[in-house]
Amino acid sequence: MEGLRVLELYSGIGGMHFALKESGTPAQVVAAIDINTTANQIYKHNFPDTPVWNKTIEGITLDDFNKLSVDMIMMSPPCQPFTRLGLQGDIADPRTKSFLYILDLLPRLHKQPQFILLENVKGFESSSARERLVQTLMGCGYIFQEFMISPTTVGIPNSRLRYFLIAKISAENVSIQTKSKVFSAAPHPAQSEVPSDLSPPRPNPDQPVEKTHGGQVLFKLESLVEVQRKVSQNNDLSVRQLQDFLEPLTEENLKHYLLAPKTLLRYGLILDIVQPECRRSVCFTKGYGRYVEGTGSVLQCCRETEIESVFTGLDQLSEKDKLEQLLKLKLRYFTPREVANLMGFPPIFSFPKSISTAQQYKVLGNSLNVVVVARLLQLLLSEHFGCSDGGEELSVF
């Protein structure tokens, strides 16, 4: 295959560009477009030879798109109109305007891109925006497949359930849909992912902190279902352990990532605590490091202390004693490099020195999993794409 000319819309920090390289696809990103100046700075730092356009997509004319003459469009439109925690404004949300603009331009391009890849949050699959997308693709003669995929599918211990669509111009130029439904590539139905735009499931507020159920002590504010789900995930040997994604930290560096005493006291009972041997972690969001609830897992560094011994009966202690107990676990945030590792970014990815830790967490939380996208690109560019029946398993996963 000759090198593809690729346009990266809503390019962020370059996750899709890295996925192109990871997939082994001969390609040139002819333009990366985003309005986030911090993300653009990071993108340019990692891909200095790629033109980065710091402008709104609506500000790019049809003539501009035609001049680019691209073979593939990769995009991750704003997710806020579709998240379950948001207002779910869908196509009425002003942030959807740029995506609708793209859908309007697509049929009018002199040369329609042969391939399209789109990523968004869970919730997009049932949106009016998705209906507009499907109608546009079918009208332009694309065949396509849709998926709900989490990185656990490719052996990465992080839950980040996302909607993906891959599309290809049909050789027969017929308007058909390859799959009649969104395909779930999750390996085990019993291990359903927590929607990544949500906080972890909250228990009944009347449930006591410590409760015995069939020999299982619920020592934190967790439902029995939540505990069982975590145990099930940690027993899935197809997923790697977190320790494979951690970086060595000196005691001095470690201090920068330890949870503050006031954070421990206020949020200790709802923290998602993991150990290096775990095969799971919850989705890291853009608020990680600044906010605690529902923004990502924290790591237990002191393995000599049993977590049950800390939390059992914790609600009966004074504030001073509570803190003393919680500090025994030596809980810390994952570093930005570790979050990047769990999102599939290669070792060569780096941040400019001017980007603060808070900014690093924020842009990572807005990004995507590189390995998942790379696998989808391999499927999209394979000779068999669009040829199998709807019930066939996906070989790339």
Rank of each mutant, 00 (worst) to 15 (best):
G123A: 13
F124Q: 06
F124A: 12
E125V: 04
E125F: 00
E125R: 02
S126V: 06
S127N: 05
S127Y: 03
A129M: 11
R130V: 07
R130P: 02
R130D: 09
E131K: 12
R132D: 11
L133G: 05
L133V: 00
L133Q: 00
V134E: 07
Q135D: 13
T136Q: 11
M138Q: 04
G139D: 06
G139E: 00
G141W: 09
Y142G: 03
I143K: 14
I143Q: 15
F144I: 06
Q145P: 01
E146R: 02
F147S: 01
F147K: 00
M148L: 10
M148V: 09
M148E: 05
I149Q: 00
I149K: 02
I149L: 12
S150W: 12
S150R: 14
S150P: 12
T152E: 07
T153Y: 14
T153M: 15
V154R: 03
G155S: 00
G155P: 04
G155F: 07
N158D: 03
N158E: 05
S159T: 11
S159Q: 15
R160M: 02
R160G: 08
L161G: 00
R162P: 13
R162A: 07
R162F: 02
Y163T: 10
Y163D: 10
Y163I: 08
F164D: 04
L165C: 02
L165N: 05
K168M: 08
K168W: 12
S170D: 15
N173F: 11
N173I: 11
N173W: 10
N173M: 14
V174M: 08
S175W: 13
S175R: 15
I176P: 06
I176W: 05
Q177P: 09
T178P: 01
K179N: 02
S180P: 12
V182L: 15
F183T: 08
F183G: 03
F183E: 10
A185G: 06
A185N: 00
A186G: 03
P187A: 04
P187S: 04
P187R: 04
H188V: 11
P189K: 13
Q191M: 09
Q191P: 03
Q191D: 10
S192M: 14
E193M: 15
V194F: 13
V194Y: 11
P195V: 12
L198D: 11
L198A: 11
S199I: 08
P200Y: 12
R202Q: 09
P203E: 02
P203C: 00
N204G: 01
P205M: 03
D206E: 01
D206V: 02
D206W: 04
Q207R: 04
P208C: 08
P208E: 13
V209H: 01
E210V: 08
E210K: 06
K211M: 14
T212I: 11
T212A: 05
H213G: 05
H213Y: 05
H213A: 12
H213E: 15
G214F: 11
G214I: 07
G215F: 09
V217L: 14
V217H: 06
K220W: 04
L221Y: 05
L221T: 03
E222V: 06
L224A: 07
L224S: 08
L224F: 01
L224Q: 09
V225I: 06
V225P: 02
E226D: 15
V227Y: 01
V227K: 03
R229F: 06
K230L: 15
V231T: 09
S232Y: 14
S232T: 09
S232A: 15
S232I: 00
S232R: 03
Q233S: 08
D236P: 10
D236H: 09
L237E: 05
S238V: 11
S238E: 14
V239Q: 00
